[in-house]
């Protein structure tokens, strides 16, 4: 774990040194998913919540990685601290949830994700996507016991 953390720290440092964590510094945009990582908090009702901000002139969701401890319902409260209008198209069972995020606005989106894996969301309006406004929702955990294969535990990488 210590080695992994050291590698991660080194990666972040190199990304920063190369100017890839800023807009129009090392290259045109900002490297995807370098806006930090945050864990959703689970309420007593099982619903998970997180706040995600769009800092000024960073064109990133912060945190850009949201971690859900397990599948279920997630409420994301977006804050647009930028001086441009953005949006968020977030995957959810049934249909994507889509929200305008005008300059200096806040808005909530609730989505349902039913299993482990990671899911991309983004601001699919002009100027945004390639520059860095892509975020990830990571759902941790396993599928229900009854859906697993009837076999002994297997080695993993």
């Amino acid at each position: 774990m210590l080695v992994a953390r050291a590698r991660e720290k080194q990666l972040s440092q190199v990304v920063s040194e190369l100017g890839l964590d800023k807009q129009n510094k090392g290259t045109i945009g900002r490297l995807l998913n370098h806006g930090g990582i945050g864990q959703a908090e689970e309420g007593a009702d099982g619903r998970m919540k997180i706040q995600v901000r769009i800092p000024e002139d960073e064109l990133t969701y912060s945190p850009s990685i949201t971690v859900m401890p397990h599948a279920g319902e997630l409420e994301i409260e977006f804050f647009n601290d930028d001086t441009n209008t953005h949006c968020a198209q977030v995957p959810s069972n049934g249909d994507y949830q889509w929200i305008w995020l005008p300059n200096g606005s806040r808005g909530k989106v609730t989505v349902t994700l039913d299993g482990p894996g990671y899911y991309w969301y983004g601001s699919n309006v002009g100027n945004d996507e390639g520059r860095g406004l892509m975020g990830t929702i990571v759902v941790m955990g396993d599928v229900p016991e009854e859906a697993r294969l009837d076999r002994p535990a297997q080695p993993r990488p």
Binding site: D95, Y96, Q97, G104, S105, R106, G107, V109
Partner: peptide
């Protein structure tokens, strides 16, 4: 403290079609 305006409510993307 920053004052935020309310963003328009989210919609299912298919409704924008």
């Amino acid at each position: 403290t920053q004052e935020y305006i309310d963003a328009p409510p989210p919609v299912a993307l298919g409704n924008l079609s």
